[in-house]
Design a protein around this nucleic acid. Structure first.
Lengths: 235, 235
DNA sequence: GATTTTAATGAATTCGCCTCATTATCAATC
DNA sequence: GATTGATAATGAGGCGAATTCATTAAAATC
């Protein structure tokens, strides 16, 4: 009955924060190599230089650890962006938001996969920081589009949620193909392509802007005037 | 050492195919109730009226069983569609394809979640039938758009892959919100909304169709003719 | 009816997450 | 610099769930 628990001498006691960040770093490493399902707590422990049980002093469960890793990563990605506030113009801002998302995927495909696929499995994903940050990102686009509609730059009869889903959905779908290795993509090309369709639509109905019509009308009016003058002069 | 293995008398030996379909039916049931992670092989076995070990006679692993369930379901969904061939016109066909996808999600949210999220975790998703069927679905849209471009119905400078990603991405993104319970959606409204943006774009630049211009030109031409006549008459 | 084949069994094993009583370390205190 | 209290870290073990396999009974074949 009497369990004999021996314990190695010489184990170091780091300050809590250091340990936590060591573990998270190790976890991030393993996850991005193997994905959630194939990540073993034992491997994380090993790489962090602790024993498995120690992980549970700092994290409630595997899921909890993973969630925190995801949250931290997402936060970093968004924080590191100092560009956005400087960009002017609806189309340019929209293009940049798309570009930024594609860029972070290109830079860290494994983590992106983790964020897109595995983090969302979490039964209470809706209460995670990642979810919140994700919402904030989509809100940026919604706001942008909403304002464009207000200003009359975008059509009034388009639903903002659908627009948002189109943009983010496209980014994610593009990402899947990429992560599956179904061919690379050029970030600028895709960002342009999306913005292009969103702005101008697909239909090839031959259209002219109002100014072009005005132009024609003016030209014809001049002809008319000239004729009128001639007619008047002969009178 | 000598393991005593007793075995119940009276167990029935069904034809293989029957057993397989029993197991798959049970598996589908449990999955759609609990999702992949929370599905237990033991529960599947119980519902199928066999013992756990039996599952492994017909399926290599849990993952294998799940994959086959997913494949079968996807196949059914696509097969049950007799509508598509009858629909004419690019816009109508496009709208229908979107509508169909949304519909199957609405009808079977749990299975859809499974397909969208959990099946894709499979390390070799790319070699599954589901993947192939999914590709076929996207190919339908690509074909449609490609033909529309050929016919001059769609603009030539839009990339078909981006268009495909926009459409499917949007559907999936919409689905996520729905599955997370962030609010319902009206299938027709969304299908229309997507088709609308895809066709006409967002930009609110005031545009007129060619026929409208022709109209103006014709009217002015008549005026000019009249003036010319008057001028000629006076000469 | 004997023989062969094989579907089904259930006990045992494995594997991975997680718990917990025990113990070494460190900081504060004297 | 010794004592002590608080607690970080340990490692053995529990537990749940997937998977294996030798054994056995049912069906098929002769």
């Amino acid at each position: 009955m009497a369990t004999v628990t021996t314990r190695k001498k010489g184990t170091v006691r780091l300050p809590q924060e250091q340990r936590v960040s060591d573990i998270m770093a190790a976890a991030r490493q393993v996850i991005s190599e193997k994905g959630y399902e194939n990540t073993l707590m034992s491997e994380i422990a090993e790489r962090a230089g602790v024993v498995e049980g120690t992980l549970y002093r700092y994290f409630d469960s595997k899921r909890d650890l993973m969630t925190k890793v995801a949250d931290a990563w997402f936060e970093e990605v968004l924080e590191s962006d100092t560009e956005l506030p400087r960009i002017q113009g609806t189309r340019e801002r929209l293009r940049y938001l798309i570009w930024r998302a594609l860029m972070s995927i290109r830079r860290q495909p494994a983590m992106s996969r983790f964020m897109l696929l595995e983090v969302r499995q979490n039964p209470d994903y809706r209460h995670t920081r990642s979810f919140e940050l994700n919402k904030r990102m989509t809100a940026e686009i919604s706001l942008l589009c909403g304002q464009a509609i207000e200003r009359g730059e975008f059509r009034r009869d388009v639903s903002v949620p659908i627009l948002r889903d189109l943009i983010f959905g496209c980014i994610e779908h593009r990402t899947w193909s990429f992560l599956r290795g179904e061919g690379d993509f050029d970030i600028d090309e895709v960002a342009d392509g999306i913005a292009n369709v969103i702005y101008r639509g697909m239909a090839a109905v031959d259209r002219a802007s109002k100014s072009e019509i005005e132009n024609v009308v003016e030209r014809l009016e001049k002809v008319a005037e000239k004729l009128e003058e001639r007619a008047g002069g002969k009178r």
